[in-house]
């Protein structure tokens, strides 16, 4: 079987298209690359949706944690503590068995016990908590001068936040937020090893890498391929976040702009 046919058969295997049976013996390098690459679709799906939706909740949470009213502050603090203080792995297990229980309450909750919805919700809440802590830290370190300038212009309330505080927060937080996004993409590999079932062997990249490593009993081929895909993905994320960073800092002189670099000092 040529490599082209393999790609036709397995490129969208993780979504359920193409050949139904996974290869069982005589694995070729092409099959390794195609299957693991097919699984990457799920990693990208979880990562992109969780980052985009998590971003909005994270902003809300950061503002709530920064507020003077304890009615807003306390829930935000507890939410962030809950999701940052416990392992994502256990959160997945807990959520999955919780969703299974909910399923017996009403059929409305049915999708939650499958990975595409249930795991996405956990990842969304998780990344919202981590990002909120980053945004909160940035909100706290807005230079006093910026706020005084806003006051001098007569800006108050929403317009002060929208026009002065929020852009500065994003500028300060962006390098750390880039790291968070990268780690979130890494964390998506936990989905199918932590309770959520890979229905009809439709799994993510790690699921297929593990399948191949278990079948061939040779970890030296599938895992480096997985690593290759993830390093590629990391570079793509850095590129996109770098573009946004450039736009955020477009008013600054060239020499004062900070570049987004993969500097994982603060990690999840």
């Amino acid at each position: 079987m040529s490599c082209f046919e393999t790609i036709q058969d397995y490129a969208f295997r993780s979504l359920g298209y193409g050949e139904r049976l996974l290869p069982r013996s005589d694995f070729t390098l092409c099959e390794h690359f195609t299957l693991i690459g097919s699984g990457m679709i799920w990693n990208i799906y979880y990562g992109v949706l969780a980052v985009v939706t998590g971003f909005f909740l994270a902003n809300l949470l950061a503002v709530a944690k920064n507020s003077n009213s304890s009615w807003a502050r306390k829930p935000a603090e507890w939410f962030i503590f809950l999701f940052r203080g416990s392992p994502l792995f256990i959160q997945f297990f807990f959520a999955y068995s919780l969703f299974l229980n909910l399923k017996s309450v009403s059929s409305f909750f049915d999708p939650l016990s499958s990975a595409w919805a249930g795991a996405l919700i956990v990842l969304f809440l998780n990344t919202a908590a981590y990002s909120a802590e980053i945004f909160y830290g940035a909100l706290q370190s807005i230079p006093r001068g910026d706020i005084e300038a806003a006051d001098a212009y007569g800006l108050t309330g929403w317009s002060r936040f929208r026009k002065v505080m929020w852009p500065t927060t994003m500028r300060l937080a962006w390098p750390a937020y880039t790291n968070e996004a990268i780690f979130l993409f890494h964390a998506t590999t936990l989905v199918f090893v932590s309770g959520f079932p890979a229905w009809r062997q439709k799994g993510d990249a790690l699921y297929y890498a593990k399948y191949l490593a278990d079948k061939t009993f040779n970890p030296f081929v599938p895992y480096p391929i997985l690593a290759f895909y993830f390093i590629l993905l990391t570079l793509v994320i850095i590129f996109f976040f770098g573009l946004i960073n450039k736009r955020l800092n477009r008013h600054l002189p060239q020499s004062q702009r900070t570049k987004v670099k993969y500097k994982p000092n603060l990690m999840r």
């Binding site: 890494h186 590999t189 490593a213 970890p219 895992y223 997985l226 690593a227 993830f230």
Partner: peptide, 21 residues
């Protein structure tokens, strides 16, 4: 760079078999 650029679970699953072998 390599260990930090790749999901840690992949490393866990890899090293346990690789070290043993």
């Amino acid at each position: 760079a390599i260990v930090r650029g790749v999901p840690d679970i992949a490393f866990f699953l890899f090293f346990v078999i690789a070290l043993d072998q």
